[in-house]
Design a protein around this nucleic acid. Structure first.
Length: 215
DNA sequence: TCATTAACACGGG
DNA sequence: CCCGTGTTAATGA
């Protein structure tokens, strides 16, 4: 359907070969399918039920926690080979999602239908390890996120937010408005503008309209 | 002390 | 003009 589809599938296979045993790779490729998601699209909505678990092949996904009053809080990134831990939970328990997943850069996602999951847990050691590692990794990310909320001042949180973004995108240019950053950190724009200005004075960043450059 | 809210001016696209 | 940005003043935790 898409011209570069076979090439992408070939890449998917290569990645999976590094992670999983051959039998599982075969099954993964057979039952799953590729989903291309554009930057800015929602991959998983709050309250949504999931029938497939998404494995990130390429691109970056951001996970947010929301409350019912329109507040949100950025939690962590998903990158290549990561799977959304929330989706795993949702699949196994058949419960609605507690988080929102937004695709940050154009991404290839491998969608795996849920009935296979539990079967693979007993069938394939590599799958078991992958799922456990994923939970483990997410747990650590969450602890780090809690750390930053509970113990760090807003100026440190902001700087960490910018550096995390730089690390995950590989780019020193951040295209985000102060308002968007404020929302992700669950604070006000005034504070973000003031602290960014401070960082600029410290020559850690350069400010432009709709753009922040990390030095 | 530091965050939030409201308000306002500036200026680039 | 619209919107993002920078700042201030008042209020609150």
């Amino acid at each position: 359907m898409i011209e570069d589809y076979p090439i992408v599938i070939e890449n998917v296979k290569k990645e999976f070969d590094l992670l999983f045993e051959p039998g599982l790779v075969k099954e993964l490729l057979e039952v799953g399918h590729l989903k291309k998601i554009k930057a800015g699209q929602v991959m998983l909505e709050l309250g949504q039920r999931v029938s497939s678990m998404p494995i990130v092949i390429s691109g970056t996904v951001r996970i947010f926690r929301d409350d019912d009053e329109g507040n949100e809080l950025f939690l962590y990134y998903l990158n290549k080979n990561d799977v959304c831990a929330m989706s795993l939970t949702c699949c196994i328990k058949n419960r609605p999602s507690e988080v929102r997943a937004i695709v940050e850069t154009d991404s290839d996602i491998w969608m795996v239908p849920l009935p296979m999951m539990e079967e693979w847990i007993t069938k394939y050691a590599s799958w078991r390890a992958y799922v456990f590692d994923s939970y483990n990794h997410r747990f650590e990310e969450l602890l780090e996120s809690i750390n930053s909320i509970a113990f760090m001042k807003m100026d440190q949180r902001l700087l960490k937010y910018l550096l995390d973004k730089q690390q995950n995108s590989g780019s020193f240019i951040i295209n985000e408005t102060h308002q968007e950053i404020a929302k992700a950190l669950n604070t006000s724009r005034v504070v973000v503008s003031r602290l960014l200005k401070q960082l600029e004075r410290e020559e850690k960043i350069e400010l432009h309209r709709n753009r922040i450059e990390i030095l």
